[in-house]
């Protein structure tokens, strides 16, 4: 078939749109299949939950402490020390850790660690034709493989948000201590400025991040093809798409939350 210039421009675009559409279809089928009885995925759900927990706790701990100490900790402390107002670091950490950085470091680590493991696992099953064998046996791979991973990743990302938040704030505590300041004012401004809206916004956001990671990574794993390089390539594509989707969603979510809840941006002394 002769490829015209038009084809050459539109073929990749069509590929991207098609993939996005297929991911949407997979999301829809996963949700329907999760709520429709029977529910055979209990054991697999627990297994995946523990798997993600075991894999992620340490990288997440190092990452959040490092990030909390680095970006909002050191830089903001530097800035505030110039004005002799380091006690306001606590208030800044509500914005920095709860609203912004704990969720996205959480999502980056989950996508990079648990998401890649899921894609590698499902991709391996696709390459070994285990998924085809399951279908022949009349076992629905979406209900038995995708749904438990989807639910487990949503739950685990949401819960890890709290964990990331605690260690992110610990980074701020470290930054305060490095500047030889007492911790009392840090906690005072932190709790004065912390609001329930921020907390639920953060947890809802990360739960949705978990859903995005699970759908992208399961889709890429289940459609892996092409022999030896296939699984590795699938992991590569999955993690790139997951990162872009997480950041784009994060921007939209934060903007909507801030614009619809003006009370969030009031600073309390």
């Amino acid at each position: 078939m002769a490829t015209t210039a038009v084809d050459r421009v539109f073929a990749p675009t069509r590929g991207v749109l098609q993939e996005a559409g297929e991911m949407m279809i997979l999301t829809g089928r996963t949700i329907v299949s999760a709520v429709k009885p029977p529910y055979p995925y209990g054991a697999e759900f627990v297994g995946q939950f523990m798997f993600a927990l075991r894999l992620c706790w340490f990288p997440l701990l190092v990452s959040t402490v490092a990030f909390g100490y680095e970006a909002p900790g050191l830089q903001a402390a530097n800035f505030l020390v110039l004005f002799g107002a380091l006690d306001r670091l606590g208030g800044f950490f509500v914005l920095a850790s709860i609203r912004e950085f704990a969720p996205f470091v959480d999502a980056i680590v989950l996508a990079g660690v648990a998401g890649t493991a899921i894609t590698a696992d499902l991709g391996a099953r696709r390459i070994r034709e285990e998924l085809d064998a399951l279908e022949v046996l009349g076992v629905d791979p979406i209900k038995n493989l995708v749904v438990p991973r989807f639910l487990a990743l949503m739950l685990v990302t949401g819960l890890f948000d709290i964990y990331a938040l605690l260690f992110g704030v610990f980074g701020g505590v470290l930054a305060t201590l490095v500047n030889h300041q007492p911790l009392g004012p840090f906690w005072a401004t932190f709790f004065n400025n912390a609001s329930t809206t921020d907390l639920w916004g953060s947890v809802v956001k990360t739960t949705l991040f978990g859903a995005i990671i699970a759908v992208v990574c399961c889709y890429k794993g289940m459609t892996a093809k092409g022999g030896a390089e296939g699984v590795g390539r699938a992991v590569n594509e999955a993690v790139v798409i997951a990162f872009l989707a997480i950041f784009a969603f994060n921007y939209v979510f934060t903007q909507v939350l801030l614009a619809t809840h003006p009370a969030l941006t009031d600073i309390v002394k």
Binding site: A66, V109, G112, A120, V231
Partner: peptide, 23 residues
């Protein structure tokens, strides 16, 4: 082929941690 996928996933763990630590 499965080993390639696992190695890819493992490299990501190391890289995520080292990016944060270097930062």
């Amino acid at each position: 082929p499965v080993g390639v996928g696992t190695a890819t996933a493992k490299s990501m763990v190391f890289n995520i941690v080292s990016v944060h630590v270097i930062g």
